[in-house]
Design a protein around this nucleic acid. Structure first.
Length: 424
RNA sequence: GGAGAGGUGGCCGAGUCGGUCGAAGGCAGCCGCCUGCUAAGCGGUUGUAGGGCCAAAAGCUCUACCCAGGGUUCGAAUCCCUGCCUCUCCGCCA
C-alpha cells in the first residue's frame, strides 16, 4: 500500500508513475471521498469530544444528587447527539471502506532505476553466467527424459489429481529432496534463518503481502474453515512480523523457507501444458528479508546474488534480467528475474524472481521498526526472492546434464545428497 | 468433538452494583540526583494511530485503541451477542 497522505497530496505524480506500469487510474473519485472523509472525521471527533465532556458533567452532577432536572435535560441532549453521531459514523465507515479499497488496489511505484517498457519483451538483460552446453544429439525435453528414466509420472498424476500435477518417483523424488536440502543448507550457512511455516493462511496474511484483494482468482481457497493455500512462502514468512514493531538491532533479518506452493494458473490455459514448468503444486525455497529503508537496494543486489549462487554451484547457465515497468509485479518496486537455460526449449526460463517491495508490504502488514535514537516508528522494507524454484531447477538439471544414452549426470554438489553420480 | 477457564500497556498484574481508567501497583527502560565502585535509595519520565493548531520542527490539543466485530447506555476495560486465539480435563487422531 502507498502512503495515503502522499497519494492525496500528489495524485498527479502517482498517476504518472503508474501509467508507466500500464495502469490507468482515476483519482478524482478517491480525492473526492478522501476530502469528505477528513471533513466527516473532524465533525465526528468534535461531537465525540462534546459527548465525553457532557457525560463527565452528568457523572459529576449525579454525585451532588439534587439537579435531576438538569441531568435529564443533558441526557436528552446527548441522546439526540448520539443519534446524529450514529448517522455520521455510518457514513464515515462507508467512505473509509471505499478509500481503503482504492488504496488496496493501487500497485507499488516503480523505482527510478526500473527500465521503462510495455511488457516482458522490454526487460533488460543485466548479466549472464555460464555457457549453454553443446550436444552432439538433439537435446530432449525434460518430460521425455523424466518419462524414459521413470522418474516423473504425469499420467498417473492426472489420474489421482488432474492436469498440472506430477509424481516424482525413485531418483526423481530423491533429486527433488536433494535440491531442497542443498538449497536450505547453502542459504542457512550464509545467515538465513530456516523457517517452515503454515502453508494454509488467513485472509489478513494474503492481504499483507498483496495477493488479496486483487488476485483472488489465482489462489486456491478452502472454506469451512476459511483458508488460502499459499502461492509462495513469501506470504507466511513476510507475515511472520505482521503488526509488530521491531527494534533497529533486529535488522536486517534474513529467512529461508522451503514450502510447497499452490497456484491456480487461471490465466495460463494452453501455456506450458506439458512438463513441470507450470504446476498447480510445486516446491520452492524462498528467501525473505526485512531491512532498514536505506539498505534495501543494496539488499536486493545481495539477495539476487544469493539466488544466483545456487545456479552457479549447480553449474547451470543463466541470465539475470531487470523487469521493465510494464512487467513488474503488483507489489514490487524493482525486480530481477533469474532465467535458467533450458536446452530442451532452447531458451531461458524464469527460475527465480527477486524483488524489493520497499514499504509497500510493510504498510499493508503494519511491520515497523524503531530507531535507537529517534522516537516514533518507521516501516521496514521487505524483499524476497526464490532461491530457487525446486521443480524448475530439476527441469534445468535434467535438460542441461542429459547424455546421449538418456542418462543424466548428477551435478557434483548434489552427489552427497543423491548418493549416485548418474541417473539412469 | 464434549466440558470448563481465560484474553488488560515492553513484561507481570489490579480493575465486574458501568462514570473521575490510557488504565493502580510492580518489573524493565530512559533522564537526573545521590554514591569511593556496584547495589540500594530519591525525583521525573517511558504506548500506537489519526485529526486540528503551527511555514516546519518542537510543542499544545482533540479522537480512537484494555483480542476482534456488533449491541445496550448520556457514558463500557467493566453488561449482552458473535467470532478468533490460549489454557485445563475427557474423547479422537498423525
Amino acid at each position: 500500500m502507498l502512503d495515503i497522505k502522499f497519494v492525496r497530496a500528489n495524485p498527479e505524480k502517482i498517476k504518472e508513475a503508474l501509467e508507466k506500469r500500464g495502469y490507468e487510474i482515476d483519482f478524482d473519485n478517491f480525492l473526492f471521498f478522501e476530502k469528505e472523509r477528513l471533513a466527516l472525521l473532524r465533525d465526528i471527533e468534535e461531537k465525540r469530544a462534546l459527548r465525553n465532556s457532557v457525560s463527565q458533567e452528568i457523572a459529576n452532577l449525579k454525585k451532588s444528587k439534587d439537579s435531576t432536572d438538569k441531568i435529564d435535560k443533558l441526557i436528552v441532549e446527548m441522546r439526540n447527539l448520539g443519534e446524529e453521531l450514529a448517522i455520521s459514523e455510518k457514513r464515515l465507515k462507508d467512505i473509509e471502506e471505499k478509500v481503503e479499497n482504492f488504496m488496496l488496489f493501487l500497485p507499488n511505484i516503480p523505482h527510478q532505476t526500473v527500465p521503462f517498457g510495455k511488457d516482458e519483451n522490454e526487460n533488460i538483460e543485466v548479466r549472464r553466467w555460464g555457457e549453454p552446453p553443446q550436444f552432439d544429439f538433439p537435446p530432449m525435453n525434460h518430460w521425455d527424459i523424466g518419462e524414459i528414466l521413470g522418474i516423473i509420472d504425469f499420467e498417473r498424476a492426472g489420474k489421482i489429481a488432474g492436469s498440472r500435477f506430477a509424481i516424482m518417483r525413485g531418483l526423481g523424488a530423491r533429486l527433488e529432496r536433494a535440491l531442497i536440502n542443498f538449497m536450505l543448507d547453502l542459504h542457512t550457512q550464509k545467515g538465513y534463518i530456516e523457517v517452515f511455516p503454515p502453508i494454509l493462511v488467513n485472509k489478513a496474511s494474503m492481504t499483507g503481502t498483496g495477493q488479496l484483494p486483487k488476485f483472488e482468482e489465482d489462489l486456491f481457497r478452502i472454506t469451512d474453515p476459511e483458508f488460502y493455500l499459499i502461492p509462495t512462502a513469501e506470504v507466511p514468512v513476510t507475515n511472520l512480523h505482521r503488526e509488530e514493531i521491531l527494534s533497529e538491532d533486529d535488522l536486517p533479518m534474513y529467512y529461508a523457507s522451503f514450502t510447497p506452493c499452490f497456484r491456480k494458473e487461471a490465466g495460463s490455459h494452453g501455456k506450458d501444458v506439458r512438463g513441470l514448468i507450470r504446476q498447480h503444486q510445486f516446491n520452492k525455497v524462498e528467501l525473505v528479508k526485512f531491512v532498514k529503508p536505506e539498505d534495501s537496494y543494496e539488499e536486493l543486489e545481495s539477495l539476487t546474488r544469493d539466488a544466483e549462487e545456487v545456479l552457479q554451484k549447480l553449474g547451470l547457465p543463466y541470465r539475470v534480467v531487470a523487469l521493465c515497468t510494464g512487467d513488474l509485479g503488483f507489489a514490487s518496486a524493482k525486480t530481477y528475474d533469474i532465467e535458467v537455460w533450458l536446452p530442451g526449449q532452447g531458451r531461458f526460463r524464469e527460475i527465480s524472481s527477486c524483488s524489493n517491495f520497499e514499504d509497500f508490504q510493510a504498510r499493508r502488514a503494519n511491520i515497523r521498526f524503531r530507531r535507537r535514537d529517534k522516537k516514533g516508528t518507521e516501516f521496514v522494507h521487505t524483499l524476497n526472492g526464490s532461491g530457487l524454484a525446486i521443480g524448475r531447477t530439476l527441469v534445468a538439471i535434467l535438460e542441461n546434464y542429459q547424455q546421449k544414452d538418456g542418462s543424466v549426470i548428477v551435478p557434483e554438489v548434489l552427489r552427497p545428497y543423491m548418493g549416485v553420480d548418474v541417473i539412469k
